[in-house]
Amino acid sequence: MQNLKNIFVGFLVSFIGSIPLGYLNVVGFQVFQKSGLQPTIWYLLGVICIEFLVIFFTLIFAKKLAENKRLTKYIEGFSVVFMLVLASVFYFGANSKTDYSTSFDYSPFVLGIVLSCLNFIQIPFWTGWNLYLLNGKYIEVSKSRKYFYVFGTVAGTFSGMLALILSLHYFATNVDFLSKYLMQIIIPLLFLGLGIFQAIQFFRKYF
């Protein structure tokens, strides 16, 4: 029963956490638009391979990572800059018709691994969530039970990202406004807004 609870809690947290639009989802959407479902699945498998390692190690070292304020500050500062860079990259890329799913000479699986490695913000995200779930006794990770929790989280990420990618494809195909402005305006503005929000939070926290 505890193993099922670990899977359910991990799946729920990760599914909800993967739905907000991020660059991994945007590139996954481009892979789907360009190549279809099977390459998209391989791309997502590459993403969750790295996430599996991140979640596993942040689960084991959650308390030590949370106490390392300097590391957290650097990661949060980097994520602010990264969001602003992404806003510029996707804005100018959309207007120049750049397809980032084909900008790398990699298979979709390797592309997912490479881009997931650049997603540094997942370290404080999972450190915080793991601490919360452990302290609240929502999960129990002794012995092999930790693997059931991590399996639930990567399954949640895979499902959430695939659901968002398919939803984006549906709306972009059937809604004229989204088909025209999703990549050119909406997504760059979203990343810009996230970058500004994170910058405000960063300066409030550290200055």
Results as ranks from 00 to 15, higher is better:
residue 26 V to I: 15
residue 26 V to W: 13
residue 27 V to G: 02
residue 27 V to R: 03
residue 27 V to L: 12
residue 27 V to Y: 05
residue 28 G to A: 07
residue 29 F to E: 05
residue 30 Q to S: 11
residue 30 Q to E: 15
residue 31 V to T: 15
residue 32 F to A: 08
residue 32 F to S: 11
residue 33 Q to S: 15
residue 34 K to R: 14
residue 34 K to T: 13
residue 34 K to Q: 14
residue 35 S to P: 00
residue 35 S to I: 04
residue 36 G to H: 03
residue 36 G to R: 02
residue 36 G to S: 05
residue 36 G to K: 07
residue 38 Q to H: 01
residue 38 Q to M: 08
residue 38 Q to A: 12
residue 39 P to N: 05
residue 40 T to M: 13
residue 40 T to H: 07
residue 40 T to N: 12
residue 41 I to S: 02
residue 41 I to P: 01
residue 42 W to Y: 15
residue 42 W to R: 09
residue 42 W to A: 09
residue 43 Y to Q: 05
residue 43 Y to H: 04
residue 44 L to W: 10
residue 44 L to Y: 07
residue 44 L to S: 10
residue 45 L to S: 09
residue 46 G to H: 01
residue 46 G to P: 02
residue 46 G to W: 06
residue 47 V to F: 00
residue 47 V to D: 00
residue 48 I to N: 05
residue 48 I to Y: 14
residue 49 C to G: 01
residue 49 C to N: 03
residue 50 I to H: 02
residue 51 E to S: 01
residue 53 L to T: 03
residue 53 L to W: 01
residue 53 L to N: 01
residue 54 V to Y: 06
residue 54 V to C: 07
residue 55 I to L: 15
residue 55 I to Y: 11
residue 56 F to Y: 09
residue 58 T to Y: 12
residue 59 L to A: 13
residue 60 I to C: 03
residue 60 I to H: 14
residue 61 F to T: 01
residue 62 A to Q: 11
residue 62 A to V: 07
residue 62 A to P: 04
residue 62 A to S: 15
residue 63 K to Y: 12
residue 64 K to C: 01
residue 64 K to H: 11
residue 66 A to M: 09
residue 66 A to P: 00
residue 67 E to V: 02
residue 69 K to N: 09
residue 69 K to P: 02
residue 69 K to W: 04
residue 69 K to Y: 10
residue 69 K to L: 10
residue 70 R to M: 06
residue 72 T to E: 14
residue 72 T to M: 14
residue 72 T to N: 14
residue 72 T to I: 06
residue 72 T to K: 10
residue 72 T to P: 00
residue 73 K to H: 05
residue 73 K to Y: 02
residue 73 K to Q: 14
residue 73 K to C: 06
residue 74 Y to P: 02
residue 74 Y to C: 09
residue 74 Y to Q: 05
residue 76 E to I: 12
residue 76 E to C: 08
residue 78 F to L: 10
residue 78 F to S: 12
residue 78 F to E: 03
residue 78 F to I: 08
residue 80 V to G: 11
residue 80 V to Q: 14
residue 81 V to D: 04
residue 83 M to W: 05
residue 83 M to P: 06
residue 84 L to K: 04
residue 84 L to F: 15
residue 84 L to R: 07
residue 85 V to D: 00
residue 85 V to L: 11
residue 85 V to Y: 11
residue 85 V to S: 10
residue 85 V to E: 00
residue 85 V to W: 04
residue 85 V to C: 07
residue 86 L to C: 13
residue 86 L to I: 13
residue 86 L to M: 15
residue 86 L to S: 13
residue 86 L to A: 13
residue 86 L to D: 08
residue 87 A to F: 07
residue 87 A to S: 15
residue 87 A to H: 12
residue 88 S to T: 14
residue 88 S to E: 01
residue 88 S to W: 08
residue 89 V to M: 12
residue 91 Y to E: 02
residue 91 Y to V: 00
residue 92 F to Q: 04
residue 92 F to H: 11
residue 92 F to W: 14
residue 93 G to C: 07
residue 93 G to S: 09
residue 95 N to I: 10
residue 95 N to E: 13
residue 96 S to F: 01
residue 96 S to E: 12
residue 97 K to A: 12
residue 97 K to M: 06
residue 99 D to F: 03
residue 99 D to K: 05
residue 99 D to T: 05
residue 99 D to E: 10
residue 100 Y to K: 09
residue 101 S to Q: 04
residue 102 T to R: 07
residue 102 T to H: 03
residue 103 S to M: 02
residue 104 F to E: 03
residue 104 F to P: 03
residue 105 D to V: 08
residue 105 D to N: 14
residue 106 Y to I: 01
residue 107 S to H: 07
residue 107 S to F: 10
